[in-house]
Design a protein around this nucleic acid. Structure first.
Lengths: 213, 213
DNA sequence: GCCTTAAACGTAGGCCCCTCCGTTTCACTC
DNA sequence: GAGTGAAACGGAGGGGCCTACGTTTAAGGC
């Protein structure tokens, strides 16, 4: 697992750039909880004491900024996935972590939007925070599949996109319950192996094409 | 089923208003396929030959416009749900229709975004097109649950939100396959009854609170 | 300590979003 | 067919998005 691929090759930032980047992140962290994914980028720049152009130089898109804010937390959440996989039966590891991910995302305004956009703009760009999350999911799914407790044909990206659909909702008891229901639904779907599935009787998709990677 | 609730009570529009509304819809239909959910509302207004204020008067939000564009098609898709429920075993009806919905949404740029926003802004406003879809899903799920082929604790809105997360992707073979995988995942999750579920061993959510409605 | 240069910066401007407010137009009555 | 009120309309403006382009500044060599 080399999730920090091609990271030693980056030049260190110039001092002023480093400082501005940190101030932008701090400003975004302060404004995100209230404004969610529709925070004003100009407001972030103002609060950081830099121009809007500087913000765009460091974070070329809104989603890049939001994902950068969550990068550290998401990375350590992904590390937990590795630990769970090492210490628990594969099935439980997957269950625990997916519940954790569900809770995490539903209390982070804007994260769902950012993940969706990251998935959309093509995984080519290896949007880092997104990739870290998908890889953690892939790891857990592969583990459970190897133990015969999950189907192998579903990808981490599939589960993530389905899950983060409910993250946009405001954080209320009702939407927390909804997140739990969706997590449970996805887990049960994952645990249904081909053969015991009821899917064969439905209108079959035209082909079971699986994209590379 | 009275999905056209409180519809006879609305006054007919004035002639000019009716005309402008139609022209706005036509313009949106023409622009949506290329631009998706980020089409320029000013461009829609220009193409329709009206001012931007008129657009906002008819469609107070971007999502209202997009959902209005899809209203007719979504309504007839929802009608098909009723027909399937009447002519097929409940389980198959659910499967067929969900696959159909998956395909439909993934070829309608902007629809996923609009549904997510409709869910977010509170179902109080009974955003019509959204409600029609959720009700169709609820109907099918209830039917399958009554036959013992679906769990009763999952709501149409849950499934819809999870599904439309993948709709934003551009329409490629890869993303069509992804939509199929997610639909399959959700169907299998729905078909897993409490008791046969593997969920009990995981980290349990704090409560099984179910919101009213 | 100066010089150089690539890196980083801010200003300005075009476009879009959305709303306020004064004006126009339809529909209905007499 | 003129009058009237409510409904619908457009212009204008403040603010955010994003980029082009000219200016400033940090970092390393001498």
């Amino acid at each position: 697992m080399e999730r920090t691929t091609a990271r030693a090759a980056v030049k260190p930032l110039r001092a002023d750039a480093r400082r501005n980047r940190d101030q932008l992140l701090a400003a975004a962290i302060a404004l995100l909880p209230q404004k969610g994914s529709q925070l004003s980028l100009e407001a972030v720049a103002r609060r950081a004491g830099v121009s809007i152009a500087t913000l765009y130089r460091h974070f070329p898109t809104r989603e890049a900024l939001i994902l950068a804010v969550h990068h550290q937390e998401m990375t350590s959440l992904a590390d937990e996935a590795g630990e769970l996989a090492a210490t628990l039966p594969a099935e439980q590891a997957l269950q625990r972590w997916l519940h954790r991910l569900g809770r995490y995302g539903s209390t982070r305004p804007g994260l769902g939007d950012a993940f969706r956009t990251a998935a959309l703009t093509g995984e080519e760009l290896l949007e880092e925070t997104y990739q870290v999350t998908v890889q953690a999911l892939d790891l857990l799914i592969a583990g459970a599949a190897a133990a015969g407790h999950a189907r192998p044909d579903v990808r981490g990206g599939d589960v993530l996109l389905a899950l983060c659909g409910v993250w946009d909702l405001p954080d209320t008891p009702a939407s927390r319950a909804q997140t739990d229901r969706v997590v449970g639904l996805l887990l049960d779907g994952l645990a249904t192996l081909p053969g015991s599935s009821s899917r064969e009787t439905g209108e079959a998709p035209t082909g079971s094409y699986l994209p590379p990677r």
